[in-house]
């Protein structure tokens, strides 16, 4: 749970962690039923054959926002940059 919360970038309190563990455990247990479904008739391709293809955009310019509009909601900004706490790996 701590690993997944970390991947999700969500801090959890100990209580929340325990609660989610049991709640999600139940949901996942319920979802185990999928293991019993016979899916052999579904082709093993990652592309859904029902989807249309090649809906593409021509390479022509559209209006961009101004820097002022872009930064309108920035929690912090300076010199037209979004400012945030120091980036770490």
């Amino acid at each position: 749970m701590a690993y997944v919360a970390g991947l999700s970038r969500i801090d959890l309190s100990k209580e929340e962690e325990a609660l989610f563990q049991s709640q999600l455990g139940k949901v996942l247990e319920y979802a185990q039923e999928l293991q019993k479904v016979d899916v052999s008739s579904v082709p093993d391709t990652p592309i859904d054959p029902n989807l249309p293809t090649n809906v593409l955009r021509e390479d022509s310019l559209r209006d961009s926002l101004t820097a002022r509009e872009a930064l309108l909601n920035a929690p912090k900004q300076a010199n037209n940059l979004f400012i945030m706490p120091k980036i770490v790996e």
């Binding site: 997944v4 999600l24 980036i87 770490v88």
Partner: peptide, 29 residues
């Protein structure tokens, strides 16, 4: 937040309600 990582984790901890957190965590899992 004091750096980019804990800024994210605390922003999302404090900003999201329980159901949203629960579903994000399930989806990540």
């Amino acid at each position: 937040g004091t750096d980019s990582i804990n800024s994210y984790s605390k922003t999302r901890e404090q900003g999201f309600g329980s159901e949203v957190k629960r579903r994000i965590i399930l989806g990540t899992y």
